[in-house]
């Protein structure tokens, strides 16, 4: 990214985030700044804290220390003086409905049709009108190539199709950012391409994306920034050609030599 864009307000700002699950420390002081309209790929070995970091951004996990700001809004807290007060659940849920999240296991609502899955949050979380939301949902389904599946139940779709519905569901919120938690890890190899294609199209359209992924080649192709995590820290981050092709740290080199 150019110098001009780093001077503008960041879309996501993570400061000093720590997180432990009991004895196990998962995040040890994360600082990350993500500019609007950029694609950030987070890579790293299993258990390095990638998914936990992603989940702290929309407060699915509550950090033990540190703050997350999305589009200028402090997530999960309200600042009063120099104190942070935890938000009531209702306000937290309202914040979440501006952040798209795509799960590894899709987590589509199995008892609702594809269309119902996509319109549910705009209707009930954002209180938008059905006659406005439904055409939008159909457009989104067309955009992910599933216009003809609107009335199907998720169980009758392939994994790749289900994940594309999940992406349409996240887009229906008209979110400021979309977070992807290993979006292709639960897919059969031949279905990975169709999902990556949809994500790449989103990247070209100027959306702000954060993607936890094992697809190094994909990260190289679409990411503006690659962040390598290990042991609960961001070891290094930068443009793909520096992090992936000329890594500065031994741990990054060791990881890349195993996966490339």
């Amino acid at each position: 990214m150019s110098a001009a864009s780093t001077s503008q307000a960041p879309m996501i700002e993570i400061r000093g985030v720590h997180k432990s699950f009991g004895e196990l420390t998962v995040l040890r002081g994360i600082d990350l700044r993500i500019d609007p309209g950029t694609v950030t790929a987070i890579i790293g070995p299993s258990g390095s804290g990638k998914s936990t970091l992603l989940r702290t951004i929309n407060h699915l996990e509550q950090a033990d220390a540190g703050t997350v700001t999305v589009a200028g809004t402090l997530i999960g807290y309200r600042r009063r003086g120099d104190r942070l007060h935890q938000l009531a659940e209702r306000d937290l849920l309202r914040q979440r409905s501006t952040i798209g999240f795509v799960f590894q296991d899709f987590n589509l609502f199995g008892h609702l049709t594809v269309l119902q899955n996509v319109i549910e949050a705009p209707l009930s979380a954002q209180r938008r009108k059905r006659r406005e939301v439904e055409p939008l949902a159909r457009d989104l389904l067309a955009r992910v190539g599933l216009a003809d599946k609107a009335d199907e139940y998720p169980r009758r779709l392939s994994g790749g199709q289900q994940q594309r519905v999940a992406i349409a569901r996240a887009l229906a919120l008209q979110p400021a950012v979309i977070l992807f938690d290993e979006p292709t890890s639960a897919l059969d190899p031949e279905l990975v391409g169709e999902v990556l294609e949809v994500i790449a199209e989103l990247a070209r359209s100027g959306a702000t994306l954060v993607i936890v992924t094992h697809e190094i080649g994909f990260a190289r192709r679409i990411a503006d920034t690659v962040a390598f995590m290990d042991g609960g820290q961001i070891v290094e981050s930068g443009p793909p050609n520096s992090v992936l092709d000329h890594p500065q740290h031994e741990r990054t080199r060791a990881f890349l030599s195993k996966v490339l």
């Binding site: 209702r90 501006t98 799960f103 199995g110 919120l173």
Partner: peptide, 24 residues
């Protein structure tokens, strides 16, 4: 995962229970 998806989408608590969890 159903409840987690409902929470991530920001559905109100009652809606999470009555529309997503209870029917299933």
């Amino acid at each position: 995962g159903q409840l987690e998806a409902a929470a991530a989408l920001g559905l109100p608590r009652r809606r999470q229970f009555f529309k997503i969890v209870l029917p299933q």
